[in-house]
Amino acid sequence: MQKVENPRPMLWQLFKSTFLLSAFTFGGGFVIVSLMKKKFVEELNWFGEEEMLDITAISQSSPGPIPINASVIIGYRMYGIIGSLVAVLGTAIPPMVIISVISVFYTQFRENPIIAIALQVMRAGVAAVILDVVINLASHVFKAKKALYIGLMIVAFICTYFFDISAMIVILCCLGIGIADLLWNLWKERRTEA
């Protein structure tokens, strides 16, 4: 957590970013985290890529909506509890406003052909953004040249994409593998010392 002299411009940027991301994000938690990665890591340089991946794993494994969870953690990272409040407000307000308006005339909304087409074509843009983020992330995993991590990434992809195994199970398994890796390293260290 960092403290800045005058937090106002940063908090405003935080609110503006979470608000816009939330207003334009359709379909699922992983969409918004890739947009957050793009915004906070690549565009604003607020923190690193590995940190964003950790935040994603924590958000996915905690109860509640993933965008809200990620906002709480990113906000906390930037300016403690106040940061969290600002980020959560930014994320929660757009869907609240949109649904309040739509709940009044949702049949008209659902049957409007222009809205249907706009929402449908926007998916192509969303897919482009996610794949752009994925290319960056995956190339870093490959460049690190650690067989264990490359293997985990490929196996995890096959499990989720082709076998529809839930994200929660994949994360828990990798957590187990991480702990096993840690214990293995400790055991090796002790053996070389002895």
Binding site: V33, A57, V134, A138, V155, T160, Y161, V170, C173, L175
Partner: peptide
């Protein structure tokens, strides 16, 4: 060990 899995989850989505 968690991070590559998260990359895979995002790719799948």
């Amino acid at each position: 060990a968690l991070r590559p899995a998260v990359v895979a989850l995002i790719a799948s989505a």
